[in-house]
Design a protein around this nucleic acid. Structure first.
Lengths: 245, 245
DNA sequence: TGGCGAGCTTGACTTAAATCAAGGTTTGTC
DNA sequence: GACAAACCTTGATTTAAGTCAAGCTCGCCA
């Protein structure tokens, strides 16, 4: 697996614009940022951006890099994270198809406040900063949608802060698992879509501690695990275990 | 000091509109959310909101309350925080004059994701949700300003997450102190504008641990403290001590 | 001015979680 | 199908930070 990094300025691949434009328009209309806009507007957006391809594990941007534009994930997944000099990482969010990445930096023109890398082969639609600013200025609908995307993110950051500060690792893991499992009562099987090492970074801990947290939840009777498969045996118990320590 | 709490629905005080309108317009034009707007627009905003007065330590809203509108701090300060059942608190941010409070909930119409209380006697300008939505729809400028306010907040939340997850208490305290002190080199005196107990909640710890963190910084020669006065003796050392543990 | 109380500090102790080290398991590749 | 490389788990140890319990300091009010 080629893990060679690539700076923001490099262009992994740019597809020719014309034959695929309709496909792209369709894709962007799925994205919450642009959905519900008329074709002409989306066409304008498409004209001003381009597709970029990334291999699995490739860096999309690094914290501190100057921001030149923003990405909308077309398919694949992008992890946004902070890392310490000692090599520990805290995942801030994992963005999937339709979700924007790097828009905060693009808005302000500041350097990226965090790093981003792909978790799997990923394609993004990339819009340069100036074009993006034009679009939100001329399309109030887009600005409103962006506002609601940022609000949602603020809420999720606030609860991550709460959990990191006021809860223990086991509680945070329980929270995370509950958010992955769509929430019907009774037994329920969840297939993790990331490695446990990645899950540890998302929960804010190291793999060893994550492993012990899984043990604790299993010993309590809330779940069972086998590899990446998690069987939630007692959702309401798990909910109780997710409360502050 | 009357510490009696008051729900969001209660109205602490509503000033009569007319004679003070010009004063209010001036105040709002200072607020980053509305600055640079023409008088007519601001007048429209003023018409659709009202002033509210809060005593020191009074609850502005509680996490989970239904959100009815948003506040812009006119004077005083409001602390936004999360709290655990065990009574520990994590401060998310402290908002001063001109800054909006509760706008994320107001935008989405969701319950407040955190609680807020005043740190001192405070006056806010309060706009009901519907009026606020109207304003951002009809005033793209306001939407853009709100976007930049939310972006700034996201950046600060992201770095709080990073610090909580990847740094120790002493490092976080150093970060906090650096952000309070405007940043010229050489010796510098900072007067804390909150109690050390409040500072502990902002740094994400308890007063006992905060006290020991101050000791450590003092023993290292970075600063000296006396009551609420902090003398930064070696700013560059403090910056080094603020790096990840 | 004296005393009361909140806020702050200090010390001893406990607990949670990171680190270190090693062994086992899965996965993917040739 | 065998091997290597990640990935994951387990145990032992260390360290950071929270808790508990006093005692102190300072500002405020009677």
């Amino acid at each position: 697996m080629d893990k060679e990094k690539e700076t923001v300025t490099g262009q992994p691949q740019a597809r020719p614009g014309n034959p695929l434009q309709q496909e792209l328009i369709d894709l962007l209309q799925q994205a919450s940022l642009f959905s519900g806009l008329d074709d002409a507007t989306v066409l304008e957006v498409v004209r001003r951006g381009r597709l970029r391809l990334f291999a699995a594990g490739q860096t999309v941007f690094m914290q501190g890099d100057p921001s030149k534009g923003l990405h909308v994930v077309v398919h694949g997944r992008v992890k946004v994270y902070k890392s310490s000099p000692q090599g520990r990482e805290q995942t801030l969010m994992i963005m999937g198809p339709g979700e924007p990445v790097g828009e905060v930096a693009a808005l302000a023109g500041d350097p990226y406040p965090a790093s981003a890398e792909t978790l799997e082969p990923t394609e993004t639609f990339y819009i340069m900063r100036d074009a993006f600013i034009d679009i939100i200025r001329s399309q109030p609908e887009v600005a409103l949608r962006l506002l609601s995307a940022l609000s949602a993110r603020l809420r999720s950051f606030a609860s991550l802060i709460e959990d990191l500060s006021l809860k223990g690792v086991t509680e945070r893991l329980a929270v995370q698992l509950l958010s992955l499992a769509p929430g019907c009562p009774g037994e329920q099987t969840v297939e993790l879509d990331i490695s446990k090492t990645e899950l540890a970074a998302a929960v804010g801990t190291v793999p060893e501690t994550l492993s012990r947290a899984f043990q604790q939840l299993a010993r309590a009777g809330a779940l069972e695990t086998k590899g990446r498969t998690v069987v939630i045996k007692d959702r309401s118990l798990l909910q109780r275990l997710a409360q502050a320590k």
